[in-house]
């Protein structure tokens, strides 16, 4: 029977191959259909503008943003020789240096004390995460008042202790620090929430076993909590770094980049260059600088995090 069936079988095999190929194509189409909305929007609002930004950064434009003169790397050379932009970069890095460790250390402390099983702990957790629900604009308004030269609480407290009033937002020496303080406050909510989540995912048997071994509180903190929390900390640091480089709202609300450009952070500088001075070319060059900084941070995160973070 086998021998008789060969020609028929051969046809069957051919047909089979065709159907399987068709099914494969259909599956591909189906997959793409599910992804299409995301891919289309990413293309319009992410990939295209990224390419366009790079393109614009090599041109001078008229004030509606139409490229007019090709200038090569001149925009880049100009911004890096401009004291204003260099100052802006310096302020940005200082700002990052103030806010990232500040927010993380405070949040870590809060997360640790809020991770205990106590009555009413839910209330404290809610309090600690509350700043996540407060918008940049509202938070800036709150702090604007606290920083107010005469009525503000900070200066009132200082005058109680007999210290001279500080021009929190108006003194070039203080402005960046003041903005940083308010930013730390704004970022605590989110950072706290993530760190608390990380702490709660640590297996409590580790602590029970350490208790039996007679390890003290701080020993456990150092030897169990922090090492087990390191992937979470790592993630939080990366997010905080990226967020810090993208800061805009509080600058716009509190200082408008002043005094003496001391708080002219990168994104604010891009905004000012593009939408106030209509210098789209140089602004694009600055935007590319921002993109590269973020790219480097994320790449470092991927590289370092490879061992801990699995994207599978």
């Amino acid at each position: 029977m086998n021998q008789l069936a060969i020609p028929h079988d051969h046809l069957e095999t051919l047909e089979l191959k065709n159907t399987l190929k068709k099914q494969k194509i259909l599956r591909w189409l189906k997959g793409m259909l599910f992804l299409a909305p995301s891919i289309i929007l990413f293309s319009i609002f992410l990939f295209y503008p990224l390419a366009r930004s790079i393109y614009l950064s090599f041109f001078l434009t008229n004030n509606t943003g139409v490229p007019t003169v090709f200038v090569g790397f001149e925009n880049y050379i100009n911004i890096f020789t401009s004291p204003i932009f260099r100052n802006s970069l310096q302020s940005t890095f200082l700002f990052v240096l103030y806010t990232v460790p500040g927010a993380i250390i405070i949040s870590l402390f809060l997360a640790i004390i809020a991770n205990e099983k106590l009555k009413g702990i839910g209330f404290f957790r809610t309090m600690f995460s509350s700043t996540m629900g407060i918008s940049v604009a509202a938070a800036s308004v709150f702090w604007m008042f606290l920083f107010h030269p005469t009525m503000g609480w900070l200066n009132q407290i200082l005058s109680y202790v007999g210290v001279d009033a500080i021009g929190w937002l108006t003194d070039p020496k203080w402005a960046l620090l003041s903005v940083s303080i308010s930013t730390i406050w704004m970022n605590i909510g989110f950072t706290f929430l993530i760190l608390l989540g990380g702490l709660q995912s640590i297996d409590r048997y580790l602590y029970e076993s350490a208790d039996i071994d007679g390890a003290g509180y701080f020993y456990q903190l150092r030897r169990i909590t922090l090492p087990m929390l390191s992937p979470t900390l790592f993630f939080v640091i990366t997010v905080a770094l990226i967020n810090a480089f993208q800061t805009f709202g509080q600058i716009d609300m509190l200082t408008r980049g002043g005094p003496q450009n001391q708080t002219n952070l990168l994104v604010y500088s891009i905004y000012r260059e593009a939408f106030m001075n209509y210098q789209y070319g140089p602004a694009s060059a600055q935007a590319i600088v921002l993109f590269i900084i973020i790219l480097i941070i994320t790449l470092i995160q991927f590289k370092l995090g490879e061992r801990k973070v699995h994207y599978q």
Binding site: K24, R27, W28, K30, G31, M32, F34, L35, S38, I39, F42, F45, L46, Y48, P49, L50, R52, S53, L56, G65, I242, F245, Q246, F248, V267, I270, Y271, A274, Y280, A283, S284, A287, I288, L290, F291, I294, L295, T298, L299, Y311
Partner: peptide, 28 residues
């Protein structure tokens, strides 16, 4: 859904997280 190029596309999606929206405001 298993289809050809799925992993490449997923990587592309992950890569978009590296592009800050703030750097794209001008063309957008």
């Amino acid at each position: 859904i298993e289809f050809k190029g799925r992993d490449v596309l997923f990587f592309l999606f992950i890569a978009t997280m590296m592009v800050p929206f703030e750097a794209l405001i001008i063309p957008n």
